[in-house]
Each structure stands twice: as structure tokens, then as C-alpha cells.
Design a binder for these strands. Structure first.
Length: 476
RNA sequence: CGGGGCGUAGCGCAGCUUGGUAGCGCACUUGCUUUGGGAGCAAGGGGUCGCAGGUUCGAAUCCUGUCGCCCCGACCA
């Protein structure tokens, strides 16, 4: 392997520093002049736009519509659902002044919108004929966090939050799971991030939810990242906000609500799952630039090669997100490293030799492999290669996860792996065991994977009969 | 909120111990030569040394305070 990039700290040396280096050097973000906030630069915002587009399409296909609710929530609304307030009170930012005037009631900057949306739904819903209500919102939210990291946890972040109301518990639960399925598609098929679907234990549940479903992904340092959540809220919010409808039988009933959200944190998952010591590796489906073309040559050769490369780019630009790097001030070697750092999936090199033989040389970012393609095969070979990179990145992530997932019969076994990785074990269901585990090892219950049966080896903490098969890990 | 680290040019740093009016590398500008894995030479531009007090003839350097950022933990997408 050739010399590593000087600007990026190797993952093995210091994973956090590696992450910080990559997000900066790949031109994804800049730190904002306010603690805990970041600027998403065009390169990362474009990735977010691809995620948005794919998700939005799936939401529409499943009958949802977008709407937009206010940024500010009056205090009296925020505190209506007791558990919910308790869960969020520590991280709410408040607006107390309007111009020079002190406000009569302080206004919360939304940490999430269940309350204000619930208040509106209560007014909109009268009859069973008004149900279901299936609305999604693309928005920013604010949570006053103590420790922040770009994408993974920032004070302000972008997300979508879906809020639905249903006539029955069954329908609401089905909605909750359906949306979880969409998140899974986005993470796995679009971002190439394999996830484990499960239900949160009571201690990890969303404040005010009856049931929280989650997708957990394994990062390159062996820590878990909660990558999307979907909540069945039962009638908790319906009762707090008086969301009632008159049913067919003439009886006034409370609706059943759900909420589900996913955030720019998914970009953090993307970076950590695929990145390597040379920088970012982007799956073609979300790569702002899928193919970069680097002309090589000197003097007259260079002009001929560049002209030819420009023609090629023009020809292919309808089909691919392709860019010609004809900057004269950098050498090819510099450009190779630069685009690798930024994670571009394929690089085309065109030099005098290629020109003479009517061929192009393609380098894959995922494997580093170089392939020579005849001119008349370029278009179809490139699309195949892009698909192959997309698939390979996902497969590599699946393999990494498989080799870092361990079944354990007691929690001491986790120490053999430095508490890094996914651990599957039986759990008795007692929060005291979960607390003790966390206290001693910083490992938490990420979820109870859907469809997983207990092994019968007893709770990994107390040894009592297991009630659930659980996925344990240290988490971001 | 605890622990650690750091604030000097756009970035990375040296200078501080022992005070004397700021330097190196990269980046940037111009010119020439270069280009199949981070090019070379030459000439340039750019800094109220985080901020505020204090000590001193004189402070990047010493003292006091303060603000900010990064990392690691505890709490949360």
C-alpha cells in the first residue's frame, strides 16, 4: 500500500481523530462559530438531498404527505405529556424575548414536534372518516447537548419526523413497522449501511412512547449507532392532546398515534461504516460525484487528452454524475489522492497511452483496483462498476459486522473483545441488570432484535432465565 | 457536568522556561519549467500572538481573570 495521506490520522491510531480529519478533509462540514453547531457544506448537503429524495419518494408511495409546523412551541403545550416533558426538559432551548419585550409565556425551540402537531391534530380530527392522518415534516430541531460531534450529535440537526393518527392500535403498529422498513431500505440499499432492527428496552424508549423500534448499525470502532427510530405512541399523546374522533358506532374515541424520525446522523453512519485511512468512501447512489475524470499528459499531449476527456464527460453526463478535473495547477497524483479522500467511487484516468489505444483506465475507490476499458464499452462497464461498488461496500460492511458480532453467555466475555462490537446475549428483562452492565462496562442494550429467540443460557448479567434475546454494545 | 488537551497568518506548528516588538512548513499570488500516485525554481502578499486587566522602560513570553474550541467519560437522534 502506498504512502498514507498525511492529513488523515489512521483509524487504528485514533478513531475519533480519524473521523474529525475525514469530515474536514473531505469537505463535508465546517465548525460553526457556535458551540455544538456545524455547517453542512455543499458536498455533505448534497448527500442529504439524495437521502431526502429517496426517503420522500417512499413516504409518498406509502400515502404520506409533507407539511410544516412551527419552530416554536409554547410551554403549555410542551408540558402536556408528562413523560415526554421529563425526557426532554434538560435539552430544550427557550425563547424568552421578542424584540425588547419579555414574553408572557416562554417558547421552546422544538426538540421534536409531537406536542405542537398533536395540538393541531386535535383540531383537525372529528370523525373516523378523518383517519388515518399521515403527515411527514422535513425540519430542523434543537436539543441542547453537552457533548457534540458533527453529524452524530449536534445541537441543531436536520431530520424528517412523521406523525400519524390511526383508528386502531393494530393499524398504528403496522404503520410504525412499515416506516421502520423504509428506513431499513434507505440505510441498506441507498447508504450501504447494514442494520439490525429491534425494539428498544423500556429504559431506552422514546419519552412518551409505548414501543420504540430502532435500527442499529455497527461503526468501524465497534460502537453502535442508532440510525433511525419509529415509535408506537399508543394513546398517550392522543389523551394528552385530546385527539378524539367519533367512531362509526357513535362513540367518541381516542386516536392511536405514531412518530418516526431519521436524521443527518445517517451521514455519520455512512462515513464511519465505509471510510478508510485514505478518507471517505461513498456508495455511488449517494455520491455527489460518481466518476471523476483525470486527464494525464504534458504539452500537446495534455491538450489532446483533455479534449478527448471533455468529450467523454459530455457524452456520459446524462447518465452519470461525472466531473472532469482539468485543473492545471495540480499533478495527477495529487488529484488521485484528493478525490480518494473525498470518496468518489470511480476515477477515470486518461493519458496518451489510453488515447493511442482507444481505452480508458478506471480505478475503483472501494478496492483500489484499476481496470482498462475499451472505448466502445465505456458506458455499460461504468454502470456495472458503479453497481458493483455499491454492492461491495455493503458486503464489506456486512462482513465487518459479522466478524465483530459475538454471542455471549455472560457479560464478562465482552472483555475479550474490549467491549467493542455487537454482543448477542440473553437478558432477564430487569432494568437493574441493564444498569449494572452499563455501570461496569459502558455497554447498553441497543435493542431486542425482531425475531430473535433466547438461547436459554440465562441472563448475561444475573444468570436468571432469559426473557429476551438482546443486542448489546457501547453506543454513540 | 467531570477529566484531558489546545488557542500565534487560511491550515499545521515553533517561539514562552531565561521579556527586547514574530518565524517555519503547507496553502495563496505572479512567472517559467512540469504532469501515469501529493512537481521544481524564483519573486511576492498575508498575523491588534483568543479576550480583558495587571507587572515592566518594554509582554506572544510573567501574573490574575475570562471566553472559546477539540477529545474522552456520564446523559440523549
Amino acid at each position: 500500500m502506498e504512502k498514507l495521506l498525511k492529513e488523515i490520522t489512521p483509524k487504528s491510531q485514533d478513531y475519533s481523530q480519524w473521523y474529525t480529519d475525514v469530515i474536514k478533509k473531505a469537505d463535508l462540514v465546517d465548525y460553526a462559530p457556535i458551540k455544538g453547531f456545524m455547517v453542512m457544506k455543499p458536498y455533505s448537503y448534497r448527500i442529504w438531498e439524495f437521502i431526502q429524495a429517496a426517503m420522500d419518494r417512499r413516504f409518498r408511495e406509502t400515502g404520506h404527505e409533507n407539511a410544516y409546523f412551527p419552530l416554536l412551541i409554547p410551554e403549555h403545550l410542551l408540558i402536556k405529556e408528562a413523560e415526554h416533558v421529563e425526557g426532554f426538559s434538560a435539552e430544550v432551548a427557550w425563547v424568552t424575548m421578542g424584540g425588547d419585550e419579555v414574553l408572557a409565556e416562554r417558547l421552546a425551540i422544538r426538540p421534536t414536534s409531537e406536542t405542537i402537531i398533536g395540538a393541531m391534530y386535535a383540531q383537525w380530527i372529528q370523525s373516523y372518516r378523518d383517519l388515518p392522518v399521515l403527515i411527514n415534516q422535513w425540519a430542523n430541531v434543537l436539543r441542547w447537548e453537552k457533548a457534540t460531534r458533527p453529524f452524530l450529535r449536534t445541537t441543531e440537526f436536520l431530520w424528517q419526523e412523521g406523525h400519524t393518527v390511526h383508528r386502531s392500535a393494530e393499524e398504528a403498529e403496522a404503520e410504525t413497522l412499515q416506516q421502520l422498513g423504509i428506513y431499513r431500505e434507505i440505510l441498506e440499499d441507498l447508504l450501504g449501511v447494514p442494520v439490525i432492527a429491534g425494539v428498544k428496552s423500556a429504559g431506552e424508549r422514546f419519552a412518551g412512547a409505548v414501543q420504540t423500534y430502532t435500527l442499529e448499525a455497527l461503526m468501524g470502532d465497534g460502537k453502535a449507532l442508532q440510525s433511525a427510530t419509529s415509535h408506537f405512541l399508543g394513546q398517550n399523546f392522543a389523551k394528552a392532546f385530546d385527539i378524539q374522533y367519533l367512531d362509526e358506532d357513535g362513540v367518541l374515541k381516542f386516536g392511536w398515534t405514531t412518530s418516526w424520525g431519521s436524521t443527518t446522523r445517517m451521514i455519520g453512519a455512512l462515513i464511519m461504516v465505509h471510510g478508510d485511512d485514505k478518507g471517505l468512501r461513498l456508495p455511488p447512489r449517494v455520491a455527489p460525484i460518481q466518476i471523476v475524470v483525470v486527464p494525464i499528459g504534458r504539452g500537446a499531449d495534455r491538450d489532446r487528452v483533455t479534449d478527448w476527456a471533455r468529450d467523454l464527460v459530455n457524452k456520459l453526463s446524462g447518465e452519470f454524475r461525472i466531473k472532469l478535473d482539468d485543473r492545471n495547477e495540480f499533478t495527477p497524483g495529487y488529484k488521485f489522492n484528493d478525490w480518494e479522500m473525498r470518496g468518489v467511487p470511480l476515477r477515470i484516468e486518461i493519458g496518451p497511452r489510453d488515447l493511442a489505444q482507444k481505452q480508458i483506465t478506471v480505478a475503483r475507490r472501494d478496492t483500489g483496483e484499476k481496470i482498462v476499458i475499451a472505448e466502445n464499452m465505456v458506458s455499460e462497464t461504468l454502470s456495472q462498476l458503479l453497481e458493483d461498488v455499491q454492492r461491495t461496500l455493503f458486503e464489506q460492511a456486512v462482513e465487518y459486522r459479522a466478524s465483530h458480532t459475538f454471542s455471549v453467555e455472560n457479560y464478562q466475555e465482552m472483555a475479550h473483545h474490549n467491549h467493542r462490537g455487537f454482543f448477542l446475549g440473553d437478558w432477564c428483562g430487569q432494568e437493574t441488570c441493564a444498569d449494572r452492565l452499563k455501570q461496569e462496562t459502558s455497554v447498553t442494550i441497543r435493542c431486542l432484535p425482531l425475531g430473535a429467540d433466547i438461547a436459554g443460557t440465562g441472563c448475561i448479567v444475573c444468570g436468571q432465565p432469559g426473557q429476551h434475546r438482546a443486542l448489546f454494545a457501547r453506543a454513540y
